[in-house]
Simulated assay, not measured.
Amino acid sequence: MMSELTFYTNPQSRGRIARWMLEEAGADYETVGLDYAAGMKGDDYRAINPMGKVPAIVHRGRTVTECAAICAYLADAFPEAGLAPTADERADYYRWMFFAAGPLEAAATERARGIVVTPEQSRMVGYGSFDTVVDTLEQAVAAHDYIAGDRFTAADVYVGSHILWGSQFGWLPKRDAFDAYMARLADRPAYVRGGEKDDALMAEMQANG
Rank of each mutant, 00 (worst) to 15 (best):
V54M: 08
V54T: 04
P55K: 08
A56M: 02
V58T: 09
H59L: 05
G61S: 06
G61W: 04
T63N: 10
T63R: 06
T63Y: 05
T63W: 08
T63S: 13
V64K: 02
T65N: 11
E66T: 01
A68V: 01
A69L: 03
I70M: 12
C71H: 11
C71R: 10
C71I: 04
Y73P: 03
L74V: 04
A75P: 09
A75F: 02
D76F: 05
D76A: 11
F78T: 01
F78V: 04
P79V: 06
G82P: 00
A84T: 08
A84C: 14
A84W: 12
P85Q: 02
A87P: 08
D88Q: 14
E89K: 00
E89I: 00
E89Y: 01
R90S: 13
A91M: 14
A91G: 11
D92F: 04
Y93I: 01
Y93V: 01
R95E: 15
W96I: 07
W96S: 05
W96N: 10
F99Q: 10
F99C: 13
F99K: 09
P103L: 10
L104I: 11
E105C: 02
E105M: 04
A106H: 13
A108I: 06
T109G: 10
E110F: 10
R111H: 15
R111V: 03
A112Q: 13
G114V: 04
I115S: 04
V116D: 15
T118K: 00
P119H: 04
P119N: 09
P119E: 07
E120I: 03
E120Q: 11
M124R: 06
G126T: 07
G126I: 05
Y127R: 14
G128F: 12
S129A: 12
F130P: 08
D131H: 09
T132G: 15
T132S: 15
V133L: 02
V134S: 08
V134A: 01
D135P: 04
V141G: 01
A143K: 15
A143G: 06
A143S: 13
A143H: 13
H144V: 03
D145R: 11
D145G: 15
Y146L: 10
I147T: 00
I147M: 05
A148S: 15
A148C: 09
A148E: 06
G149C: 02
G149V: 00
D150Y: 04
D150H: 05
R151N: 09
R151C: 08
T153D: 09
A154K: 01
A154W: 02
A155N: 05
A155M: 03
V159Y: 05
G160N: 10
S161K: 00
S161M: 06
S161W: 08
H162W: 14
I163K: 06
I163N: 10
I163L: 10
G166E: 12
G166W: 15
G166H: 12
S167M: 14
S167G: 15
F169N: 11
F169L: 15
G170V: 01
G170N: 12
W171N: 09
L172T: 00
P173R: 00
R175S: 07
A177R: 03
